Simulated scan of single mutants.
Amino acid sequence: MNQDFQEAVRDTPGGTAEGQVAVVTGGANGLGEVIVRRLHSGGCRVAVADLDGHAATALAEELDGTRATARGYAADVSIRAALEQLLADVLADFHGVHILVNNAARTQAKPLLEITPDELDAVMAVNFNGMFNACQIFGAYLAEHGYGRIVNMASLAGQNGGTATGGHYASSKGAIISATKVFARELAPRGVTVNAVSPGPQDSPMVRSIVGEENLESYRRTIPVGRLGNPAFIAEMVALLASPDAASVTGACWDANGGLYMR
């Protein structure tokens, strides 16, 4: 581990990732924004990457107008060259990367048998290819420096075959869980952990729009714990996996689905 990385991952109270540089894709809104805010409040310097570069920059400037601890970047994760450029830009600005959160995702609620080849390709390009390419590109950098944390955002849909958000979306999330294990095994000897977080239905605008406000109460009753998930808790899971304390956790998929899927 080189000296710069030793400084960044020095022991801190509670094993936090304070001072480390975290890249969050799809970080400008939704769950990604919650994760960005949690990592930043925990002392990380955060690179907010999003297809909407203006939204990413606006969030970063809200967090730190000086741009010392937060910066926004426009990045289309479906394009490998864009991810290569993202790494180069973040290194130029922050002089290091320690954490990658692959959160960018595309959903499309559509009956399975009606999904077109182009729609399948578009969802897989963002959800799976984007994650895989980012793990390769950033993983190589982290492995070279002997330390890193990668957290991939999966989904309950990828575990139980749920198709409410689209069969191609569910398939991509299942593939993410498998790829997480492959990258974890490959990178573990080089100081890099790779894990997945698999949320169930969250109390979010997306879930409310899919379920429908009129059906929300009856839907809650189908969840064993009787409530939708809290995005802030998902962000806490990500923060823990991204911390130095999680050194012995790799290749895992942490569930937070209210008991809808038990294993």
Rank of each mutant, 00 (worst) to 15 (best):
184 A>D: 10
91 L>P: 06
213 E>T: 08
86 L>Y: 01
143 A>S: 12
145 H>I: 08
129 N>F: 08
162 G>C: 11
83 L>T: 10
90 V>K: 02
174 G>A: 09
128 F>H: 11
78 S>H: 02
187 L>V: 10
90 V>E: 02
108 Q>L: 14
91 L>S: 10
70 A>R: 03
86 L>V: 11
120 L>Q: 06
70 A>F: 05
200 G>V: 12
208 R>K: 15
103 N>I: 05
151 V>Y: 01
141 Y>D: 12
159 Q>S: 12
70 A>H: 02
164 A>G: 02
149 R>E: 10
199 P>A: 07
146 G>C: 10
81 A>C: 04
198 S>L: 09
143 A>N: 07
194 V>W: 02
157 A>I: 07
167 G>E: 08
172 S>Q: 04
141 Y>F: 11
109 A>P: 09
192 V>C: 00
97 V>F: 00
88 A>C: 07
189 P>N: 09
131 M>W: 01
72 G>S: 07
114 E>N: 13
189 P>A: 06
179 A>E: 13
199 P>T: 11
96 G>Y: 02
88 A>Y: 03
134 A>L: 03
171 S>E: 00
153 M>H: 02
117 P>E: 11
96 G>S: 06
186 E>T: 13
76 D>V: 08
166 G>L: 12
166 G>C: 12
120 L>A: 09
120 L>T: 13
212 G>Q: 10
180 T>P: 01
206 M>Q: 15
156 L>D: 04
146 G>D: 08
152 N>C: 07
92 A>C: 12
85 Q>T: 15
202 Q>T: 14
149 R>S: 10
181 K>T: 11
124 M>H: 06
102 N>H: 04
165 T>S: 15
142 L>F: 14
105 A>Q: 04
